[in-house]
Design a binder for these strands. Structure first.
Length: 369
DNA sequence: CGAATTTGACCTGCGC
DNA sequence: GCGCAGGTCAAATTCG
């Protein structure tokens, strides 16, 4: 109950990780980035491609003109609606990797388990870099929490089948006292199907990263083997069932793992080219996340680069659907994040990181399991 | 007062 | 079947 008002602040840099549509018990692949050099530990499982992360350093980011504008463009282009992903074709996009046949669907690494999201999340171990020193970004406030709450209920239905939404709603209306029981009923016997998930991992002192969408926190759970709790967010837009999970790595407390699940059914609430007035500005309220002026550009970029250098992403694809995650797994939320990064000349690094990871061929993955 | 967060309870899936 | 852990709900609480 003791509510910490600080919770409402916003976010800083992105963390992005791979997702999975955990069809049935499909968990995210474990990932490990070791020590200082970004060198993945090879995985035995699939005999996939192995890359040395140490080779992947960040190229100097190209000077960006407009922050908000570019970001929003990208948001619109890639993130607005899930349906848009098909047409998204930025060559350097993080999502291209997911959408293309490139078997990067799964980046797998051996990992001593202490991962924040045991069994589902990944772990990053990096050389500690300068975390965001000051975070004062805005919060994603203003959403209609009630709707989101409702969506939350629907989530369960969606998991089991959208056709049951109405039916379940009726039940709820007629018997509010047993909502949970109803929920249980509904979900029983139905294989819960998760939306594609993408996780971003970044070094940040702020847990909840502002990706341009409005989120409402609907839960928090203590994570096993981690002193840090995991927070659950849901997109506040009506009808949008996108969820976001935020947790901090127990191994490296400076690392935040943000997992997106689902696709936004709406454009980002942030107005494109909002300039100084649009919501996008909140994204960059944090001096470390914005490029207030070209004067400070290098400095900020440097810090962001460090973050990204230490960030890597993975796509936790359910073992059975690895091959199909290419286009559908790209959540708009993640797209927004990637767009942001790409717009700032940072995404490439993220991609690089991903590509340097061990790539497991779908078949191999299946065999492995 | 509306919106967002907190937090304990509850539910589900999974491993043993 | 039981227990554990993850995930979600929703009343209470807090904030703007």
């Amino acid at each position: 109950m003791a509510r910490s008002g600080g919770e409402r602040r916003a976010n800083s840099a992105f963390t992005m990780a791979g997702g999975s549509s955990g069809g049935g018990g499909g968990d995210l692949e474990e990932i490990l980035m070791q020590g200082s050099g970004f060198s993945f530990s090879g995985t035995a499982g699939g005999g996939g491609i192995y890359y040395d992360m140490q080779q992947m350093m960040l190229p100097p980011p190209p000077p960006q003109s407009g922050f908000g504008g570019g970001f929003m463009e990208l948001l619109d282009a890639s993130g607005g609606c899930g349906a848009d992903f098909g047409g998204y074709s930025a060559p350097s996009s993080l999502f291209d990797l997911f959408q293309t046949p490139f078997p990067a669907a799964t980046v797998q690494l051996d990992l001593p388990m202490s991962s924040p999201a045991a069994g589902e999340s990944s772990e990053v171990v990096n050389n500690p870099t300068t975390p965001n020193s000051s975070i004062s970004s805005s919060s994603n406030e203003g959403g209609n929490s009630k709707k989101s709450s409702k969506d939350g209920k629907n989530r369960l239905k969606e998991d089991g089948g959208e056709e049951e939404e109405e039916e379940q709603d009726e039940e709820k209306n007629t018997n509010n006292s047993s909502k949970k029981q109803l929920k249980a009923k509904k979900t029983k016997g139905q294989k819960k199907q998760r939306e594609p998930r993408f996780a971003f991992m970044t070094k940040s002192e702020v847990d909840h990263l502002d990706d341009g969408y409005r989120w409402r926190k609907y839960g928090q759970k203590a994570v096993k083997n981690s002193p840090y709790p995991r927070s659950y967010y849901r997109c506040t837009s009506a009808g949008c069932g996108v969820k976001k999970r935020v947790e901090r790595s127990s191994d490296d407390t400076s690392i935040v793992v943000t997992t997106y699940e689902g696709q936004h059914t709406h454009p980002s609430p942030i107005t494109p080219r909002s300039g100084s007035g649009g919501g996008i500005r909140h994204l960059f309220a944090d001096p470390l996340n914005i490029l207030p002026s070209y004067h400070h550009y290098n400095q900020h970029i440097h810090q962001q680069q460090q973050q990204l250098q230490n960030a890597y992403m993975y796509n936790s694809t359910p073992s059975h659907n690895i091959t199909t995650t290419t286009t559908t797994s790209a959540t708009s939320a993640a797209a927004a994040a990637s767009s942001f990064l790409r717009d700032n000349g940072l995404l490439q690094d993220m991609v690089t990181c991903q590509m340097t990871g061990k790539v497991v061929e779908p078949k191999e993955e299946e065999q492995r399991l």
